[in-house]
Amino acid sequence: MTAQPFALAESSELAHALVARVLRDHGIRALFLKGPVATAQGLLPQRVSSDVDVLCDPSQMRQAEGVFDGLGWLRYHGGNSDMVAIGMHATTFVIPGWPCTVDIHNHFPGLLAPAAEAFAMLWSRRELVTLAHREVPAPSPADHFAVIAVHALRNADGAPPLISQPTLRESWARLEEAHRSQVPHYARSVGALEPLRSVLIDLGGDPGPVDQRFAAELTDWNAVRERPGDSAVLWASRWRRTAWRDRPELVFRAFWDISMDRAQRPEQWALASRRERVSGRIRRSARGIRQLPRAAWALARRARKSE
């Protein structure tokens, strides 16, 4: 006999069970999102998932990262990377030997309420979902729909009609009627109502009165949505959310950290020649400097429009 390949499709549910067990054993509260969890809840069709998405109690994020570091799991963007400090929503880990990665989120983009508040709401309504014959905690179906919806919007072209996105339409159709009616209320509680307002209307839901909280966060959200794929706007919005003491790291990551450059994956950059890395850094820096004024202008314009 020889060693068997360990396929991505086989790994996902087992990886969910493993991460859930590690976090539970260390007393860390976390909810599993999207992928096979949403499939098990009937929200998404079956498909191969390449990562484990975990939303961690923000107050325990550092602890969770430390636990993963201690297990020898590798930070995707390098051992010294600190995604929390620079406003990134997730830290990605690679489990040695596993084909899938683990994204541990300290907040979820599109849930505009303070991260701790949003997590507490989701946690209070959680349910257990069985994956690989083991239970993992997950948001309630209505909450999970809101998470899936903001995720779909964030990655979608900003052009209407939003309803044309099959993911959202299918997920909505798969929700039980009782859960559908919960969505506006639950979305409001985590600050996702305004990001989802037009979607809910398109889907036939009633979002109710405007939620006027989180205006600054909504401005950032809309700016990013207006320019999908524009990394400069993303970095500029992270700048606004990052404390002054962490901004030097943010500048370093934005302009110089080649592992964050999407031209190649971090492990490819790690194998690149010194010359390739240097030229990649120069390109990245030049691009960043070039795009900076436009990103700042986009955010400022958005802020003026929302006043």
Partner: peptide, 27 residues
């Protein structure tokens, strides 16, 4: 055992969930 996760897709993959959490699945 509740310390084991497993999936069945033709072959069965069995994963030990106990510390030190470094195991890989058995096929």
């Amino acid at each position: 055992s509740p310390d084991v996760a497993w999936v069945d897709g033709g072959d069965v993959l069995v994963l030990d969930l106990r510390p030190p959490y470094r195991g890989l699945p058995w096929r």
